[in-house]
Design a binder for these strands. Structure first.
Lengths: 229, 229
DNA sequence: GAAAAAACATGATAATTATCAGTTTTTACA
DNA sequence: TGTAAAAACTGATAATTATCATGTTTTTTC
C-alpha cells in the first residue's frame, strides 16, 4: 500500500499545500510513487512531460547541455520541491534534465490534475506563481554570479550554500556529497580548474576533505571570499 | 485626456489580455501614464514596488548590481512587457533595477488591482504564470550561456538577438542602439574587452558600425559563431 | 579479489579576459 | 560655438581559466 499525500509532510514546502481536501485526495489517488537510484535520470531536456514530480526524498540536479556538450547545473532541488512545473504550466517541452544525485523517492502527478486545479483553484495558481517568482529571482542571482564572480568566489558560495541547505554530519562534512564533476558543472568551470581550487581551499584550511566528502571549516571566510573580500 | 487600456495594442502581448471588460476598465481608470527619458530610472533594485509598469513604447534594461559594483543586465524588455510583476506577485522587494534605454512611455498600474484580479480571475493568474514560466526558461538559457560560452560567442548571439527582436533601419543598422557599456553589461565582460571584440567583428566584416550604431552584416556567420563553430 | 573503468589529481602551457594607463572622438550644453 | 565631460578606443600587461598530458586513487564489475 502506498502512502497518501494527505499525510506527506513535504507537501508543506510546495504549492500543493494550497489544495483543498478533495483536490488533495484526487492527487493522492492518481499519483505514482517512484524510487530512483543515484545517477538515474528522471526526465531529459527537450522531453514532453506528462506530469510533475514531487520530491519526497533525496536530491536531484536540474541541468542543461550547452551547445558545446558541457553540462550546466542550473539548480539543485530541495525537499518538497515540485519538478517540471514550469514545463506543465507553459505546456512546453522541459528545458532542463533532472538527474538523481542520491537515491530518491518522488511522486509523479499527472499533468491533467495539475492543469484542472490551476483552472479551478485560484489559490493554487497563486501558490504556483509565488514559487515560480521565487525561482525566477534565484535564477537572476545565478546569472549575476556567473557573469560577475570568479570561479573561486562561486565555489566558496557553493560550499556555504550546500552547508546551509543540506546540512552537515556529526564530523562536519556536507551531507550532500557531490562529485568534482558536479561541482564543476555548478560553478561553471573545467573539472581540472575546479579540482585545483578545492586543493587550494583545503591548503588554506577553509575546507577539509575525506574522499569525496567535503567539510566546511571556515564558513565566515568562505562567505567573505564569495562576497569579494 | 489619456488614452485607454481598452484601445491599447500592447495589451495583446502581455498578461492583461486575460482581463474581462470590467477588469480592464478598472485598470484603465487607475493607471497612470508616464513618460520616461532615456537614461532615467523607473525603479531600483531593493525597492518596494507599489505596482507594475506596462511598457507602451521604448526599451528598458533590467539589471542588477553585483557585490563588486558592476552592473549586469539580465534582460531587455520588449514592447508590451509588464515590469515588476515578479515582485508584486511575490510581495517582495524588486531584485532588479529598470532603466530606460531610449525614451519610453509606460503605464503604472497599482498593485492592489493586480492582486485583486489575481485572486478573482484564474485566467489572469494562469496568463501571468505562463509569462513567468517563459521568463524562467529564458533565464535558464542565460545562465548556461554565461557559464559555457565565451564573451565572443555571447556577443555574437547578442547581435543576432537584437536584430531579431528590435529590427534594423533601412541601412541595416540595429534600431536599438546601445552604448558599449551596455553591451559589456549584457554579455558580462569588461567594457574594454567588449570594445576590442567589436573592433574584431568589424575587421572580419561580420558587423558594421557608424558612431554608436551597429549593423549586422553576416548574420549567419554570427549565429554559427554563437553556436560554437 | 583482480582487472577495468571512473574519478581524482597535478604540471605545463595556451587561451581568454581583466586591468591599468593612457589617447582620441563624440556629445552635451553654457 | 567653444569647452568640459563622457564615451569610445588602443596598447601593454597581469590575472584567470581552459586544455592537454599524464599519473594516482577509488570504485565497480565479473
Amino acid at each position: 500500500m502506498e502512502s497518501k499525500c494527505e499525510n506527506c509532510i513535504v507537501r508543506q514546502f510546495n504549492s500543493l499545500r494550497a489544495l483543498s481536501k478533495e483536490e488533495l485526495k484526487k492527487v493522492s489517488d492518481s499519483k505514482i510513487s517512484k524510487k530512483i537510484m543515484k545517477g538515474d535520470s528522471i526526465f531529459v531536456e527537450g522531453q514532453k512531460l506528462d506530469g510533475v514530480y514531487c520530491v519526497r526524498k533525496g536530491v536531484s540536479k536540474l541541468s542543461k547541455l550547452s551547445s558545446n556538450g558541457k553540462e550546466q547545473i542550473v539548480k539543485l532541488t530541495n525537499k518538497g520541491e515540485v519538478m517540471g512545473q514550469r514545463s506543465v504550466v507553459a505546456e512546453d517541452f522541459t528545458n532542463l534534465s533532472a538527474t538523481a544525485i542520491n537515491d530518491m523517492e518522488v511522486c509523479f502527478i499527472p499533468k491533467e490534475i495539475i492543469s484542472n486545479t490551476l483552472n479551478t483553484n485560484p489559490n493554487f495558481s497563486l501558490e504556483v506563481l509565488r514559487h515560480m517568482a521565487h525561482d525566477l529571482k534565484e535564477a537572476d542571482d545565478v546569472i549575476v554570479n556567473m557573469s560577475q564572480k570568479t570561479v573561486k568566489q562561486r565555489l566558496a558560495e557553493a560550499f556555504v550554500y550546500l552547508k546551509k541547505n543540506y546540512g552537515e554530519d556529526e564530523f562536519g562534512f556536507l551531507l550532500l556529497t557531490l562529485s568534482r564533476d558536479d561541482y564543476a558543472n555548478i560553478v561553471g568551470a573545467a573539472t581540472e580548474s575546479l579540482i585545483r581550487m578545492i586543493s587550494e581551499f583545503k591548503k588554506k584550511g577553509l575546507i577539509k576533505t575525506s574522499g569525496k566528502k567535503i567539510g566546511v571549516v571556515e564558513e565566515k571566510t568562505l562567505q567573505e571570499l564569495a562576497d569579494g573580500f
